[in-house]
Each structure stands twice: as C-alpha cells, then as structure tokens.
Simulated scan of single mutants.
Amino acid sequence: MELELRTVVYAKKVEIRNVPVFACTACVAYEVLQPVKPDLTECISKLGERPVKQDVSFGEQNELADLFHEQLLAWPDATDQEMEYRMKEAVQERINLLLDIMGYARQAEDKAWMEDIQRRLGQLSGFVWQAHFSNAV
C-alpha cells in the first residue's frame, strides 16, 4: 500500500481535500491513515447531515495531514525511508514552531488560541512513523 492524499466526498456536496490514505494499487482499495481518522470524523460531523456545497482543506483541520501534504508536494519521488526521515524532521520543526506560538498565546492570555495550539500539538505528539507504516508499505 502507498501513502497518498485523496479527496473525500461527503454527502455528494462536500469535497475534503488532502486526506492522507493508504491506497492499494492492486485492488484499488484505500484506508484513511489511523492518526487522522478522529479529526476526519469530527470534520464530517460538524458539516451535518445536509451540508452546503463546499470545498474543505483537511490540512486546516489536522496538522499531520498538513505536513504530509507539504512533504509529498516537496518530495513527490521520495522513497519510504526518505519520507520517514523528512516527516520526522517536519513533525519536530512544527512542534517547535507551535511551542513558540504557545508562548505568544500565553503572553496574550488568549485561551482560545492556547486551546487550538494544544489540539494541534496533540495531533503531532503521538505520531510514530513505524507504528503506522511498517505493515502498510
């Protein structure tokens, strides 16, 4: 199976772009990457049963999806080992950036901003490449 970014269509009206999935080239099946499933489910539930026609970038909902999008655009021909290295670096850099931003949010005493940053950090902090890719690639 290969890691790809796909567009998920919900209720025939909403296109959710850049969702990381494992795709099987032999049988054309795909599975949403496990660490992003809860955020995709939440995104869909917020849309409701009768959403209006719209286009949603999943990278705005999930930090990990955003990083995969950035890395796959920058390195489309990377091997699995190269992508593992690049993703580990990108995750660490993003965590450092978010921690710096958290300092500004604390200084500003902006609780909503701090909660958003904590949510984004949580999306990145538990990601371990081997746990999600060793059986799929």
Rank of each mutant, 00 (worst) to 15 (best):
H132M: 14
D100E: 08
S57K: 08
G122K: 06
V137I: 11
F127S: 09
C43Q: 12
L33T: 14
I95A: 03
L47I: 10
L73H: 05
E31D: 10
T41F: 03
N135S: 14
Q130V: 09
P35N: 09
I16Y: 00
A90N: 02
L72Y: 06
R119E: 11
N18G: 00
M102P: 05
V36W: 11
C24W: 00
Y10K: 03
I16S: 00
E70A: 09
A78K: 04
R6S: 12
A136M: 14
R86E: 10
C43Y: 01
A65I: 05
K13S: 03
P35I: 10
Q107T: 12
L124G: 01
I101F: 02
K111A: 11
V21F: 13
E15L: 03
S134E: 15
Y30S: 13
A108S: 14
G122F: 00
E42V: 03
V21D: 13
E109I: 07
E15I: 01
A29V: 03
R94M: 04
Q71E: 13
Y10F: 09
V14G: 02
E84S: 10
L72W: 02
D66E: 14
H132P: 06
V8Q: 07
I16D: 00
K37V: 15
K88A: 09
C24G: 04
A29W: 03
I44P: 00
M83H: 07
V52W: 11
E93N: 15
E15T: 00
S45F: 06
E31H: 12
N96Y: 04
V91M: 06
F133N: 07
S125T: 02
L73I: 06
Q61V: 10
Q130K: 13
P76A: 05
L33E: 15
L73A: 02
V137E: 13
A74P: 06
Y10N: 08
V19Q: 10
I44R: 00
R106T: 15
S45Y: 05
P35H: 06
N18S: 02
A23Q: 07
L33I: 14
E42M: 13
E70R: 12
A112V: 15
F133K: 06
Q130C: 04
Q81D: 11
R94Y: 03
Q61E: 15
H132R: 04
K111G: 06
G48I: 10
A23Y: 08
E93L: 11
L99C: 07
T7R: 07
